[in-house]
């Protein structure tokens, strides 16, 4: 399973829907995730990828799309 697939699976769990956003599509502007789903998604990403997201990195922009999430995870490895 690629990073993209693993991220997509987490987004689907957070959204509670089988969504299929494009890599650069905004998860917020498209209505896939609301603000309250974000903390759950970040917690799941931390667990799935064995990374720690410090509060200073907890900004909507870093988690806005699959591409941005993938880039952030890569930067934390």
């Amino acid at each position: 399973m690629t990073d993209h697939d693993r991220i997509l699976k987490i987004i689907q769990q957070a959204a509670k829907k089988p969504v299929q956003p494009a890599g650069a599509e905004s998860l917020f502007d498209s209505g896939i995730l609301d603000s309250f789903a974000l903390p759950d998604m970040v917690s799941a990403l931390e667990q799935e990828f064995a990374i720690s997201v410090p509060d200073s990195d907890l900004t909507p922009r870093k988690f806005e799309s699959i591409d941005r999430i993938a880039a952030y995870i890569e930067s934390r490895r």
């Binding site: 917020f28 603000s35 309250f36 974000l38 903390p39 970040v42 509060d55 907890l58 900004t59 909507p60």
Partner: peptide, 13 residues
């Protein structure tokens, strides 16, 4: 207000 940021930070802190 950056509502998303406020909620993300408050939900964790």
């Amino acid at each position: 207000m950056n509502g998303r940021s406020v909620i993300m930070q408050a939900s964790r802190k």
